[in-house]
Each structure stands twice: as structure tokens, then as C-alpha cells.
Lab assay of single mutants.
Amino acid sequence: HYVEVNGKKIQATSAEEAEKIAKKFAKIYNATVLDLGNYYKVT
């Protein structure tokens, strides 16, 4: 599981952790979290 933010991949140990990381970055960048199955993308 990982999160992609601005083209950078951030490794996460679980889907739950990946979701938390994605939501945190989405809040910082006022962005949207896309759940793409095996990873989250912040756009």
C-alpha cells in the first residue's frame, strides 16, 4: 500500500495507514483523495 502525492510515492504498512496519510496530505494541499484500489492518489 502506498500514497502518491505530487508524483512521489509514500509507502504505508496498511490500507488504513495509507488512507490516513492520503487524507492528511489532501487536507494540507486542499486536494482530493482518489482510492485506486491498491493505492491512494492525492490530486
Rank of each mutant, 00 (worst) to 15 (best):
A26S: 06
G7K: 04
N30V: 04
K23A: 10
Y2Q: 02
N30H: 12
E16R: 12
G7Q: 03
Y40V: 04
G37Y: 06
A12M: 07
K27D: 12
F25A: 04
E16L: 12
T13V: 12
A31Y: 07
N38I: 09
D35I: 14
V33D: 00
K8C: 14
S14R: 02
H1F: 15
T32A: 09
G37M: 05
Y29R: 03
K20E: 12
D35R: 14
S14G: 05
K27E: 15
E16F: 10
Y2K: 04
Y2T: 05
N6R: 08
E16S: 12
A12T: 12
I10V: 08
A15M: 15
A15K: 15
V42A: 02
A26I: 07
V5D: 00
K24N: 11
A12W: 02
A15D: 06
A26Y: 04
Y29F: 12
L36F: 15
E16N: 08
A15Q: 14
I21M: 10
S14F: 03
L34E: 12
I10Y: 12
E16W: 11
Y40W: 14
Q11L: 14
K20Q: 12
S14L: 03
T13H: 12
Y29Q: 05
K8N: 08
A12C: 12
V33M: 06
Y29H: 08
K41D: 04
S14I: 05
I10P: 01
K9S: 05
N38M: 10
Y2D: 00
V5Q: 01
T43W: 11
T32K: 09
D35F: 15
I21A: 01
V42Q: 02
V33G: 01
K8W: 13
L36T: 04
A31Q: 06
Y40D: 03
G7L: 03
V3N: 00
K23Q: 13
Y29G: 05
Y39V: 07
N30T: 04
K9E: 05
E19M: 15
T13M: 11
V33T: 03
E16I: 10
H1L: 08
K23E: 11
G7H: 05
A15W: 12
G7C: 11
N38Q: 08
K23T: 09
V3S: 00
S14C: 08
N38H: 14
K24W: 15
Y2A: 03
D35A: 12
K41L: 14
A12G: 03
I28N: 07
A26L: 06
S14K: 02
V33I: 12
S14E: 01
N38A: 10
L34P: 02
G37L: 05
H1I: 12
L36V: 06
K27Q: 14
K20R: 14
E19K: 13
Y39E: 04
Q11P: 14
E17I: 08
N30D: 08
N38C: 11
D35V: 14
A15H: 15
A18R: 00
K9V: 14
A18Q: 00
N30W: 06
D35L: 13
V33H: 02
Y39R: 03
A31E: 03
Y29M: 12
A31V: 09
T43M: 11
T32L: 11
V42W: 03
A26F: 05
I10K: 01
H1E: 02
H1D: 03
T13N: 14
Y40S: 01
V33Y: 11
Y40T: 03
E4A: 04
Y2M: 05
I21Q: 03
A22I: 03
A22V: 04
K23H: 13
E19Y: 15
L34Q: 11
K41T: 07
N38D: 12
K41S: 09
K24Q: 13
L34I: 14
